[in-house]
Design a protein around this nucleic acid. Structure first.
Lengths: 191, 191
DNA sequence: ATTAGACAAACGAACGTTCGTTCGTCTGTC
DNA sequence: GACAGACGAACGAACGTTCGTTTGTCTAAT
């Protein structure tokens, strides 16, 4: 036996890969079948619908980010240390789950209303971890006192969310240096 | 006569609107016809193909950004002043041409190879204006001397390109304050 | 002033293809 | 012999696009 059987998880993983590369509407069920060495129709033994696949991938992305934030805000020490943990965690999630992260960030538009709302709430919850740490650092004097946590959180997440658009592993920056560069830029933007 | 005739420019403008909202593959020629009060087939009196429309919208976006950068780098005074002009110009382009800018930033993936390459070159040329100004400011001592222009340019453009994702006119930030906030964050990140 | 002709804009039917999805059947494994 | 995985034919709908035709407007010749 050369090939293993495909599981539901395999299908979802392949969907994440294709959705992130060609977009939801740019990916057909037959494309996805080909990716797994199957016919498009065979996928329906594993999932109910194409939309289902998008939901699965996007929710997986949301959970990865939230888990990362939950761990980061429990870091002991200064607000600065927690902010660094948030940045580090975000970059880890993005670099180790590019496809899922990309789909979460760029393809949520094609979710049905209900799930799209859920993603918006999840993103706001995630962003609020950044806002809270920034506010904390501002109030205890580590950051400038005219820092607006809302705006600063958006700017930091803008930098983090864009990484998937330009970062290439094996390029001039390895992951550790990437984290350093982002942290340095952000922290000097806050102090 | 109640309605004016539709011109090629009207079709392209409507395409920009729909592409930016629903994506290229998420927009059908019949959708686009409906937007203009036409049948899908009638659009072919104005354009050769759907791909043509994407090319037109994306190239328009590229020209807007390049024109803005060309003007900004001619500003007299410090490198800091030119950087501020670049930021100001970028935000102006985005806010006054949301649909075109969005399509330029997010839908270039669906261009044919030739035009996609062209867009990548255009983006690099635009980014190089930022790199040059940052390098200038670092060399004359206005910015920190350990600033890496490549990375800094990417971070700044990450912030600028994300604006379209969250900024809502009429919200808590008007355009002038948005420019101030970005400039302040970026400049303190560089100094 | 009237008319004929040219022209662009839009229609609406139709094309071949692809889409997401269903279903009955077959194959291999526990 | 139960059961999951995959097949392959088929479905109706939607896709991008073509084409012959109709409509309305502007211009030039009468």
């Amino acid at each position: 036996m050369v090939t293993t059987k495909n599981s539901r998880a395999d299908v979802i993983a392949a969907a994440g890969r294709l959705f992130s590369q060609k977009g939801y509407h740019g990916t057909s069920m037959r494309d996805l079948g080909r990716e797994l060495g199957l016919l498009g129709s065979s996928l329906y033994a594993h999932v109910d619908s194409k939309q289902d696949l998008l939901v699965e991938v996007v929710e997986a992305g949301g959970q990865l980010f939230q888990a990362s934030a939950d761990a980061a805000i429990q870091v002991e020490g200064s607000a600065e240390a927690r902010l660094r943990a948030l940045i580090d965690g975000h970059i880890e999630v993005v670099l180790e789950n590019v496809d899922v992260a990309r789909t979460f960030l760029n393809e949520a538009r094609d979710l049905d209303h209900e799930h799209r709302e859920k993603v918006l709430k999840a993103r706001d919850a995630y962003e609020s971890a950044f806002r809270a740490v920034i506010a904390e650092g501002r109030d205890d004097g580590s950051f400038r006192d005219d820092v607006d946590p809302k705006t600063a959180a958006i700017f930091i997440l803008s930098i983090l969310n864009a990484i998937e658009r330009w970062y290439r592993p094996g390029g001039r920056l390895d992951r550790a240096r990437l984290v350093d560069e982002v942290t340095a830029f952000v922290e000097s933007g806050l102090t």
